[in-house]
Design a protein around this nucleic acid. Structure first.
Lengths: 202, 202
DNA sequence: CGATTTTTTGAATCATATCAACGTACGTGG
DNA sequence: CCACGTACGTTGATATGATTCAAAAAATCG
């Protein structure tokens, strides 16, 4: 399955390979980026903030979550190296976001601010085309994933996550996975036990 | 809450009011539409089809659903008069859709084909602007709604639907509502009973 | 090493699913 | 226009799966 948000290879190489930028354009693009480091548990975005940049995950792992009416967290997705994070709705419309985005490890993000994004749009039309396409794709993908979440059991969701982002399971505590699946950590523990028994028997 | 898909008032009046079209532009726009009638239970779209038009619901009520791995239907949303239905992903990318869209009553749809949509885009730039904005809004709304679905209880989803589309409850069988909520008809029956008791006590 | 966090386990409880049966409404053809 | 058949909604009994609360075991970090 397609990664969450819109994806990119190593940023420079993706820009060349996928967006078809020249070396010069890629250099120009990179010159608009700034580096942001986050400590584990630090938030990149809080509900109520206005998101002012697109962030490329150069190193680390983050979670996006909401806090619902009953003050419970619900994780919507994880972002690993080579993903983009942020809230495009907030970025585009300059509205406060409803999401929290938190580092689950020490992270290195490459930021492209709203202003620089529009500069790059003007300077490198190929990038605008590429980015628009990626955003569209990403929207459709997000909808598909949430649609799947509606009809799938926790076990099915667990197995899909295993397939999509296996690295995750080596890097973050299980209770985050549970929150993503929409179940309690105790239930995930039991689900995992059932699955290992199943796989032993086969 | 915002209606599902992107919304419109009565089509002509919305085009004037919301998109700011002149009377002439509106006439021109309407000349690109064709009428499609559907009998109750007839499908407008089946999974595997390529969606070739944007459809405005002039009269009637439809449901969009998927069939999951276990051959179970799951309703994603209902569309009443003044909504648009179709699959934008399939329309834009000419890819087979994963959705079924079925008339729950006899329906009257106004179709704008892919070709006519792009003609109208060229002829009436104000419409393109309006439509792009609406599509963007609609994407964000769809994501919010699915996100809510993830953390809400069936009761919360029921009450929200009551608030958003109360007409629905007079027009379609309850088992469709149950499918939308992700529960069985029996459970919906019991949920409704609980709610009437609650409201009597207050 | 000790302290904290994470994972596992157990027992009781709760919500929904499932299966079966029944009553009701509806519309369709005779 | 009525009667019959199908579709719909409700109810009961039971099963299933997740939650909740409590506690212990295991892993991780400073």
């Amino acid at each position: 399955m397609i990664p969450d948000e819109y994806d990119a290879g190593n940023l420079a190489s993706t820009l060349k390979r996928q967006a078809g930028l020249t070396n010069e354009e890629t250099e120009l693009f990179l010159s608009f980026l700034s580096l942001k480091k986050l400590h584990k548990k630090e938030h990149y975005l809080n509900a109520g903030d206005i998101c002012n940049a697109v962030a490329y995950v150069n190193k680390g792992c983050l979670r996006r979550y909401i806090i619902d009416e009953h003050f419970k967290e619900s994780i919507l997705n994880f972002s690993l190296e080579d993903y983009f994070v942020g809230d495009l709705e907030s970025l585009m419309l300059k509205e406060p976001t409803v999401y929290f985005i938190q580092a689950l490890e020490d992270c290195e993000l490459l930021l492209l601010s709203r202003e620089n994004l529009s500069r790059v749009y003007d300077l490198i039309p190929k990038f605008k085309e590429f980015h628009d396409y990626k955003m569209k794709r990403n929207h459709y993908y997000t909808i598909k994933r949430l649609t799947f979440a509606k009809s799938a059991t926790p076990e099915e969701k667990y197995l899909l996550l295993m397939k999509d982002q296996p690295q995750l399971f080596q890097r973050i505590p299980m209770h985050f996975i549970a929150s993503y699946l929409g179940i309690e950590p105790e239930s995930l523990s039991r689900l995992r036990k059932r699955l290992t028994i199943k796989s032993h028997n086969s």
